[in-house]
Design a protein around this nucleic acid. Structure first.
Lengths: 188, 188
DNA sequence: TCCTGTATAGACTGATCTATCTAAATACGG
DNA sequence: CCGTATTTAGATAGATCAGTCTATACAGGA
């Protein structure tokens, strides 16, 4: 079945916002690329900012679902690694040019509190997943291990954009391995 | 002596671009905040994009000077740590709300090649400094150590914006310490 | 077949944007 | 003190922006 006009708009807007930026992408370019008319957009979304919020919410939902699917099927003791790998797969597939949430925070920080909060929540949700993962792996008594991994994964996103996915993800895995090995060796 | 109109414009534009975003900050708001008139801006800069480029270039110059000053006076074997600390100090003082170069890359990626290249060069310059630092510390035979540190420092910037400077910088230092300790233990 | 909801086409408003032009005022160095 | 360069003030152009309105077309279900 063909995607609904609403879904076409969400997908097109997500692509254009990501590639060109939010403020630099006009309504007219979105509707033209989606093959609909301007009133159709305003029939589904109250405003451009509402569209931005819907795009970010939908993308974040997919992101979290992808992470949760990976950790749900992870072997015991491998949950954190599975989460990190799933994060890397996401970057490789959908986030080769920087984090759209970071871009949104940069463009709407002092401009739209709802959008800013939505993007920031996407980040802290990843941190929460890391905390849950290290707990399931029995490493949560290492104070701040999840936060340290969070720093690495955030850097991974930028590094992918600058150095390419292959190099950046290999380096990311190397850092994560070192952190996990150190944590485990201090556990026994 | 009072700052020149040009310097006032650069400083004001840097602040507004950083806080509000590049496209969301209009020329009129910059000149009003700088206390000059629109023609003064166009007398010093050919266009808004030229102003953006000048702002980024000036900021990058200060950033690199700050890093180089720290490594120049570092004790042998402590160059990498000095560089990381200088980077953290910069974040704490001037980059609490995300990296302006990353924001510029996001807003001008498909819009202005010169600005995008300028911002990307700022990032790779940091990587080059890391490579020089690990070399001076005798750790450059650890393939990719500088790149791994680069991933961490990039993540540090995002983490400062999300978790606050104190927490994020402590976590960053912890990760860097682990990486350096592991590299040194593998050296002997 | 009719009815309701959705999409289309396009004109339109009012605001905002970057950039330019001109003429007068001001500052500053020789 | 004079002359040059800078700054000011304000009008203006021309483009683009988000958002609204209306009338028409078309879809699918009762």
């Amino acid at each position: 079945m063909p995607a609904s006009k609403r879904d076409q708009l969400l997908a097109t807007a997500e692509r254009l916002f990501y590639e060109q930026g939010f403020h630099a992408t006009g309504i007219d370019r979105i509707v033209a690329a989606a093959g609909v008319v301007r009133m159709t957009l305003y029939n589904h979304f109250a405003s451009k900012e509402a569209l931005v919020a819907a795009v970010l919410a939908a993308r974040h939902e997919r992101f979290i679902a992808s992470l949760d699917a990976a950790t749900a099927s992870a072997s015991p003791g491998q949950v954190t690694r599975a989460l990190v790998d799933a994060h890397g797969n996401w970057l490789e597939r959908y986030s080769q040019h920087g984090c759209i949430m970071a871009k949104a925070m940069g463009e709407f920080a002092e401009h739209n509190a709802e959008i800013h909060a939505l993007a920031a929540a996407a980040k802290t949700d990843l941190l929460a997943r890391l905390e849950a993962a290290v707990a399931r792996d029995g490493l949560d008594h290492h104070a701040g291990l999840a936060r340290r991994l969070f720093v690495v994964l955030e850097g991974s996103n930028t590094a992918v954009a600058l150095l390419g996915a292959q190099t950046a993800l290999a380096d990311t895995r190397a850092v994560v391995d070192t952190l996990l090995a150190t944590a485990r060796s201090e556990t026994r």
